[in-house]
Computed example of a mutant assay.
Amino acid sequence: MYAHNGTDLGVVCFIDIDNAIKAASWGFYLADDELFSSHQVSKRRVWLDLEKEAIDFAQHVLGLRALFCEVLEENKAVIKLHERSGFEEITHTHTHTHRAYAV
């Protein structure tokens, strides 16, 4: 669970952890917009904080060197967020609706 100022606003999951190569896949999901507005919290701010903390956790607690994720092609906001956080696109095919990123 991801809490922001004491309110649960999302969940982060790390899957397919490979300790041999120190890599994993990950994803996150945020609460619906109604919860954000009722707590007067910026969803954008939570996105940024959650991504930063998840990367830090993966590196310093799990000891990972690489994180992989897939993003739907039309989800431009998340693509931009990942790129700002240092993720680089590693695959993109026009026959699929997602892009794979790694940091």
Rank of each mutant, 00 (worst) to 15 (best):
T97S: 13
D16Q: 12
E70A: 12
F14N: 05
H4A: 10
D18L: 07
C69L: 14
D56W: 02
E51K: 03
H96W: 01
G86M: 05
E51G: 09
A54D: 01
G63R: 00
R99T: 02
L72S: 06
A100V: 13
D18E: 10
D56H: 10
T97I: 07
N5V: 09
E89H: 01
D33V: 15
C13G: 07
A66N: 06
L81A: 07
G63K: 00
V46P: 11
Y2M: 09
K43L: 03
V12P: 04
A100M: 10
T95C: 01
V41D: 07
N19C: 06
L64P: 03
E89P: 05
A20Y: 07
E89Y: 00
E73V: 04
Y101W: 10
R65P: 00
H92G: 10
V78T: 14
L62I: 05
A66F: 02
D8N: 10
R84N: 08
E34D: 15
D16W: 01
N75C: 03
N5D: 13
L35A: 15
S85D: 01
Y2K: 11
L35P: 10
V78A: 14
A31D: 05
F14D: 05
N5T: 12
N75E: 05
R84W: 02
E88S: 09
D33P: 12
D32E: 15
Q40V: 15
S25W: 11
S25A: 14
S85N: 11
A77C: 04
R84T: 04
V71G: 02
A100G: 03
F68V: 05
Q59G: 03
L50D: 04
S38E: 14
H60R: 11
N19Q: 08
S42I: 08
G10L: 10
E74D: 04
I17D: 03
A20M: 07
L81W: 00
V41S: 12
C69F: 01
D18W: 01
L64R: 00
A58R: 00
V61Q: 07
A23S: 14
S42P: 13
D8R: 09
L9E: 02
V41Y: 08
G86H: 06
H94Y: 00
K43N: 08
T7D: 03
G86N: 07
A66S: 09
E51A: 14
G86Y: 03
D33W: 10
L9H: 07
G27V: 11
I17M: 06
K22C: 14
K52G: 09
A54M: 04
E83M: 08
E70Q: 13
V46F: 06
L81N: 02
V61T: 10
L35V: 15
Q59F: 01
V71I: 15
